[in-house]
Design a protein around this nucleic acid. Structure first.
Length: 558
RNA sequence: UGUCCGAUGGUGUAAUGGUAGCACUUGUGAUUUUGGUUCAUACAGCCAAGGUUCGAAUCCUUGUCGGACAACCA
């Protein structure tokens, strides 16, 4: 058998190394979201990374909720996160919560106090911050830094018992007030928060900080590779310091950082996404314009397309800005193979075929998917009056326009050749309908005389088509990088006013039973997905993405 | 200003001291009953300067540019 050599990303190389040197027999990774918001496509990158590592190296991956701050976290978010991970197609080996470890974490904190490595500080946040000064200047020690172990033990115990008010004191690690790394200047380990926790209720009123809880939680679970984004790089010495306090074997989890995902024409920070939702710039976390996983799902993206995207963009340590077009490529690639084709007229223009018998209807054969013969075929009804799309007709057309024009002939997809004879207008000069004639010999789209017709356009039969709401989505922002703001502007100044256009379209009869989440290609227009707002008497479609369109490029250049 | 990190076509990512490759994008042509798909083809890159070496994208030095950090958030 031939050996297949795939190039590894830098994390895979580290793991392969650890496995071959015997440092680890099996790897365990974890995905550790805080349940304070919905997951976005950046999290999808992290999920695909962590779970992908489990698959390629035959390891394990835990889902762990980093729920150490009860003032921000809710069960609603826990549920949506679980749903998103499952939808992406991954299974976690264990479901844990940092709050599972509160007792253990507390005991370790007591141990640190006993070892003279932690102390209770009664200063307020401003004082503590001031004493840390700035990186180029040594910090100033807290007046409480050298309290006795006994006093620290007593105060910490009382903190836990709820004797003190929120913000009145904290437990700090005693590390190095002169470190050039600010995170090492006696970081806060515990603070008092008298709030109801979504899992532990009112049992605790002191909560561990991220830096203290995270590494120890990794340790408890036996995580071998703790993967996070670049901004935690400066936390790594602290991560290691806390672990050294409980284990010096060197078999501790290792933190590895990679560059977070950025995509053009969108924002990715939780804070900004929350703001978009709260201030109704979008309609909720799963608005199809949102870069959240639930937004992409509702928009009609498939899990495969997102996983392929995550694979393709790779994992590295340099900052990146991925073209949103790459994501569109992967959904088109998937749906081109898998979505059935149908005909839908987005901006209807009535066409009367004057030489077609009144009252007659016939059934035409149409392929469901030319890329997949097994998708079969369906019948399309055809009669004297049909609708075509407005932009498939031009009264004064340039040469390269090979759709319908006065005196010109065009093929109706799966139907007949028609020729435009008369343009009917209203008193204001708007085109209201077209009078055409058809060639009865050209049924199915070919003429016995073999004459070529350059253009083929889509249409629906006025007798059997029905109206549906179609939501045309475009990018949410008009600026490639909305976070790169000019003076006196914020990312909100770059919102695209046309990111959603709602229209009423005419759809072919077969779509009358379309169910939420079903995806189709509207021929020549794009891929569309039935929205969850859809009802049997009022079907709603979302546009996932347009088809690639070289015509607008050509016509735009003229 | 201090410490740390990073730099390969337009974008993203490989090459681990030995031929700079792949994907997206873009251009051109062919096929096509979707101006889609598919196929062919082209354009286009190692931040800079020194050094080590038979040989450097890769190692070293310096510089330039970009980023991270200074919550009782994660």
């Amino acid at each position: 058998m031939e050996e297949k050599k795939e190039s590894l990303n830098f994390i895979e190389q580290i793991i392969e190394d650890d496995l071959s040197t015997g440092k680890h027999k099996q790897i365990i990774t974890r995905f550790p979201p805080e349940p304070n918001g919905y997951l976005h496509i950046g999290h999808a990158k992290s999920i695909c990374l962590n779970f992908g590592l489990k698959e390629t190296f035959n390891g394990k991956t835990n889902l762990r909720f980093d729920d150490t701050n009860p003032s921000k976290e809710e069960t609603e978010y826990v549920e949506s996160i679980i749903e998103d991970i499952k939808w992406l197609g991954f299974e976690y080996d264990n479901l844990f919560y940092a709050s599972d470890y509160f007792e253990h974490l507390y005991e370790w904190a007591v141990m640190l106090i006993k070892n003279g490595k932690a102390y209770v500080d009664e200063q307020n946040p401003e004082q503590i911050s001031e004493q840390r000064t700035n990186p180029s200047v040594p910090g100033i020690e807290s007046p409480y830094r050298h309290r006795s172990v006994e006093e620290n033990l007593k105060l910490f115990q009382e903190m836990k018992e709820g004797k003190y008010a929120d913000g009145s004191m904290v437990l700090r690690a005693k590390i190095d007030m002169n470190s050039p790394n600010m995170h090492m200047r006696d970081p806060v380990m515990y603070r008092i928060i008298k709030k109801h926790h979504h899992r532990t209720g009112d049992k605790w009123c002191i909560y561990p900080m991220y830096d203290y809880a995270h590494g120890q939680s990794d340790y408890i679970e036996g995580i071998t590779h703790s993967i996070c984004t670049l901004e935690f790089e400066v936390h790594r010495p602290l991560y290691e310091w806390f672990l050294e306090q409980i284990d010096t074997s060197g078999k501790r989890p290792r933190q590895i950082e990679f560059a977070r995902l950025n995509i053009t024409y969108t924002v990715m920070s939780k804070r900004k996404l929350l703001e978009l939702v709260k201030n109704n710039y979008v309609n909720g976390w799963d608005d199809p314009r949102m870069p959240t996983i639930s937004g992409f799902r509702r928009r009609g993206y498939t899990p495969e397309s997102i996983r392929n995207f995550a694979d393709r963009i790779g994992v590295a340590r340099r900052e990146n800005m991925i073209d949103v077009g790459l994501l569109e490529f992967f959904i088109r690639e998937d749906l081109n193979k898998n979505a059935n084709r149908v005909m839908a007229v987005l901006n209807p223009l009535k066409v009367i075929i004057t030489n077609y018998p009144e009252g007659k209807t016939e059934q035409l054969d149409a392929q469901n998917n030319p890329e997949d013969i097994s998708a079969g075929s369906r019948k399309l009804s055809f009669s004297r009056e049909i609708f075509i799309d407005q932009d498939d007709f031009m009264e004064n057309a340039p040469n390269k326009f090979f759709r319908l024009k006065p005196g010109g002939e065009v093929r109706l997809r799966y139907g007949y050749f028609i020729k435009c004879n008369e343009v009917i207008k209203d008193s204001e000069g708007n085109i209201t309908e077209l009078h055409c004639t058809y060639d009865p010999e050209s049924k199915g789209g070919q003429s016995p005389d073999g004459r070529k017709v350059k253009g083929t356009i889509h249409w629906v039969d006025s007798k059997t088509c029905f109206d549906a709401e179609v939501r045309l989505y475009d990018r949410l922002f008009i600026k490639e990088n909305p976070e790169d703001t000019n003076e006196n502007e914020t990312y909100l100044d770059y919102l695209n006013p046309d990111s959603l256009k709602t229209i009423t379209a005419k759809l072919e009869q077969s779509l009358i039973d379309a169910k939420p989440m079903e995806r189709f290609q509207f021929e020549r227009k794009g891929y569309f997905c039935v929205d969850k707002d859809s009802r049997p008497d009022k079907i709603v479609f979302n546009r996932i993405v347009t088809l690639k369109d070289s015509w607008t490029k050509i016509s735009g250049n003229e």
